[in-house]
Amino acid sequence: MTSKRGQSHVRLAPLLAVLAITIELAAFLVWAKYRFIRYEVSGQSMYPAYRHGDWLIADRHAYRRRLPAPSHAVIAPDPTDPTRTLLKRVVRIDLHRQAWLEGDNAAHSRDSRHFGPIPVESIIARARWRYWPVGGHRRHR
């Protein structure tokens, strides 16, 4: 009997390992899906850092413990149309926790110069990695 139990333990061990890895992977995917969000860039106001059609990953937890800093590319709601989200760069944060956003391609950008600063709390995420087109994988400050 003892030897049979021993054999069944041996057979179960790889299954348990696979199960544990599967659970960890699933937990990681759930966490990643909760924390990160993917966006497709539409328009040229952030050229050349981001071009029309780029796909990027943004971090929703980036500003949980810190304020956005100048030079960060962020995703924020469009104050003139709440159904739209904008991709702009933080130029400055004032004492009233208002973020001034501008496009890198200033001549072709509608941003805080038109609609003024937006509350820091309204920023949805920080743009972190572009994953398409392939080869454009680099971290944006």
């Binding site: 993917r38 966006y39 860039v41 391609n105 509608r110």
Partner: peptide, 14 residues
Amino acid sequence: LLRPANVAHAHCDG
């Protein structure tokens, strides 16, 4: 599968 479901607008005008 990889295509994002969300759009971040970087438009200049309307």
